[in-house]
């Protein structure tokens, strides 16, 4: 279901890379996280991709990678994945003005990874208690409560 084609995206976003993957439609990789709001606003109004199905992050070697799965509500079939890699301390502009559910998704990303979203109306932990130390989904998260399974698994 790829009604949005690579050429269309390349025409509007010349600096971004566009490819296909086994993930979710085409993958649009942004260069910097500063263009996130602009790109999403254009996708929302220009391409009709107005449903944020999932918004998550990943701890990879270079830092964090934000992954945003978007769907077009008009035909409920066109999908697009937006990805951008950011550094450990970088802040991300909030998308809560564009999508209603972004507020909670961003709070969850902050809770699990520690990524700060600038401009977010209410950035605090959502799943863990308020006084929790650390951000669990980081790869360097140490916690003695996380009992490691004994034995060698591979």
């Amino acid at each position: 279901m790829k009604s949005v084609r690579c050429e269309q995206l390349k025409a509007v976003f010349p600096e971004c890379a566009c490819s296909a993957s086994g993930g979710f439609g085409l993958v649009l990789t942004l260069r910097t996280v500063k263009e996130l709001t602009g790109v999403c606003a254009t996708l929302h109004s220009g391409f009709g991709l107005d449903v944020m199905e999932d918004y998550t992050a990943r701890d990879c070697l270079e830092g964090f990678e934000l992954v945003l799965h978007m769907v077009r509500s008009l035909d409920n079939q066109t999908h697009l994945t937006v990805k951008v890699v950011l550094g450990r301390e970088e802040q991300v502009p909030t998308l809560s003005g564009l999508f209603g559910c972004a507020q909670w998704y961003e709070r969850e990303i902050f809770d699990m990874f520690g990524i700060v979203f600038s401009g977010h109306p209410d950035l605090r932990r959502i799943l863990l208690p308020e006084d929790w130390q650390g951000h669990p989904l980081r790869k360097d998260y140490q916690d003695e409560k996380l009992l490691k399974r004994p034995g060698n698994l591979s």
Binding site: P136, D143, K145, L146, L147, K148, R149
Partner: peptide
Amino acid sequence: FYYESYGTVR
């Protein structure tokens, strides 16, 4: 959730 879970009270 005995192993590998940081959120559970055992």
